[in-house]
């Protein structure tokens, strides 16, 4: 067997993880090959060296950073929870509809026509209110005119000690 093939088996040989046949082949080769024997020693040295690497302690600074992660996450979650409260959903829905309407108005190609229609509707509404106001004024006038007659009628009522036969002076 060539050295290249034996090299592949050396690490497993050190861990006694070869089949009996592979083990015999490696041992037979090692008896005659100095280069593979050297490599075997270096693999052994590498393994020992790796196993002897110390484990470093975590710095105070890193520990502080790690401890602050959950609270930061929690704070963020609270603010999101507030925004996702079900009671705010109708407000968000209304805001969305309003935004759609505003964008529909702002970006509509026929914006001038919409403006004219709005103006016309506003004027119509305004004139309706004026008419209503005028009607209310005339109704107040009529009530004023009838007020005196009603008062005299009340004075002349028999029940209140008046004379019903006395005619109302007009």
């Amino acid at each position: 067997m060539k050295c290249e093939n034996i090299e592949e088996l050396l690490s497993a040989y050190l861990e006694d993880d070869l089949s009996p046949e592979e083990k015999r082949t490696v041992e037979k080769h090692l008896k005659t090959c100095q280069s593979c024997n050297d490599l075997l020693s270096f693999i052994e040295e590498t393994n020992k060296s790796l196993a002897d690497f110390p484990q470093l302690e975590v710095s105070e600074n890193l520990l502080d950073r790690l401890y602050s992660i959950p609270s930061r996450k929690k704070k963020l979650k609270v603010s999101f929870d507030f925004l996702l409260r079900p009671s705010l959903q109708p407000i968000f829905a209304a805001a969305t509809i309003l935004m759609i309407m505003i964008s529909f108005y702002l970006f509509h190609p026929d914006r001038n026509t919409i403006n004219k229609t709005i103006n016309r509707q506003v004027h119509l509404g305004y004139s309706k209110i004026e008419r209503l106001y005028a009607n209310a004024e005339s109704f107040t006038g009529h009530l004023g005119a009838y007020k005196d007659k009603i008062l005299v009628s009340l004075k002349n009522m028999k029940l209140l000690g008046g004379n019903e036969d006395q005619k109302v002076k007009t």
């Binding site: 592949e8 050396l10 690490s11 497993a12 993880d17 490599l39 040295e45 590498t46």
Partner: peptide, 16 residues
């Protein structure tokens, strides 16, 4: 296992 073997061999060759 094959990756560990390959890694050790590569490191041992560098060391050598």
């Amino acid at each position: 296992k094959s990756r560990v073997n390959r890694g050790r061999l590569q490191l041992a060759k560098i060391l050598k």
